[in-house]
Simulated scan of single mutants.
Amino acid sequence: MQKFLNNKVSTVSTIQDKTSIKVLFSDFKQITKVGLSVSVVFTSITGYLLGADKINYTTILLLAIGGFFMVGASNAFNQIIEKDIDALMQRTKNRPLPSKRMSVTTAMVIAILFTIAGIAILYAINPKCALFGAVSIFLYTSAYTPLKAITPLAVFVGAIPGAIPFMLGWVAATGQFGVEAGFLFMIQFFWQFPHFWAIGWLQFEEYNKAGLHMLPMDKKDKGAVVQIIFYTCVMILMSIAPVLKVTGNFYIYPLTAVIILLLGILMLFYGIKLYKSEENIDARKLMLASVFYITIVPIIYVVDKFLH
């Protein structure tokens, strides 16, 4: 009987250990936003492939790891600063810090280690990469995050670190920041407005409750959608501009420009639908179309380059 009880206690203890390890791993993924970090790494690598004359797999690996640490650090700092705000919102109240599953000290250690490792790894590629990585973490943490509680202009500030990954890949490949890297930056910069304002529309009530300003002019109205449509049009123009060969070594075939234009028109279509309906369902479709756009367009650019 005693042996049976001991075995049972041992089994329960093993299950608890496995559960706690699973929770720890899940919390680590949440504090560093692994999904977002991976998507940023993907964008950086496409930027690298666009800029590289000869592919160096060591550089790609360093870019992937350094980029992952860079985004992970930004997200961890962001959640430390916003832990009390996160506790007020349904979508975020179960994150590791507001739910108190993780201490601020632990999160801070992760954030600092990721910052140091990320900048050091990017420096191993070239100093410019390290500089842009450091600027990205600084702006996201020290400007964008606190500004969200003060002004809708936070989205403009946040779009700067958000647009660095695509450009970072080109700088990793060439060691140069020229017109090509500038255009890659601008494509991702202008893309963020329809994307984040669509999210701001969907989460407007939650953000409002938490005191965050995530829509232009702080209003969920047609005026906000006019700005979404305007920035979508600018994004489309930036995305197809390389067909005019005004972007240095970064240029695309006319057929490629047509495909990208059609993808942009898909986003524009949902923007116009949102203007007419002002319904959350159309904001969600716009948000999904924007994710599709920023995933597919870099791939199209890379395919186009290897067809030259």
Rank of each mutant, 00 (worst) to 15 (best):
N7Y: 10
Q16E: 06
D17E: 05
K18Y: 04
T19Y: 03
S20D: 07
L24E: 15
S26Y: 08
S26K: 05
F28I: 09
T32E: 07
V34Q: 12
V34Y: 03
V38L: 04
V41M: 03
T43A: 10
L50S: 08
D53W: 01
K54R: 09
L62F: 02
L63D: 04
L63E: 05
A64K: 08
I65C: 05
G67S: 06
F68L: 14
F69N: 02
M70W: 10
V71S: 15
A76N: 04
F77P: 00
Q79K: 01
I80L: 03
E82C: 06
K83S: 01
M89G: 11
T92C: 00
K100H: 07
K100Y: 06
T106G: 13
A107L: 08
M108F: 13
I110T: 08
I110D: 01
A111W: 09
A111M: 12
F114G: 00
I116T: 02
G118M: 11
L122E: 10
Y123D: 04
A124Q: 06
A130Y: 15
F132V: 00
S136P: 11
F138L: 06
A143H: 14
A143L: 07
A143E: 02
L147W: 07
I150R: 10
L153M: 12
F156T: 10
I160N: 04
P161G: 10
A163K: 15
A163F: 13
A163T: 01
P165I: 07
P165V: 00
P165A: 07
G169D: 12
G169N: 07
F177M: 02
V179Q: 01
V179M: 14
I187W: 13
Q192I: 12
Q192C: 10
F193H: 12
P194D: 05
W197E: 13
I199Y: 11
F204K: 15
E206L: 01
Y207T: 12
N208R: 09
N208I: 15
A210W: 06
L212R: 05
H213M: 14
A224M: 04
V225A: 04
I229Y: 10
C233S: 05
V234S: 04
S239T: 00
G248L: 04
G248M: 02
F250A: 06
Y251G: 10
A257K: 02
L261Q: 11
L261P: 01
L262V: 08
M267K: 11
K273W: 07
K273F: 04
K273H: 13
K276C: 12
N280M: 11
S290K: 08
I294A: 04
I299N: 13
Y301H: 10
D304V: 03
K305F: 07
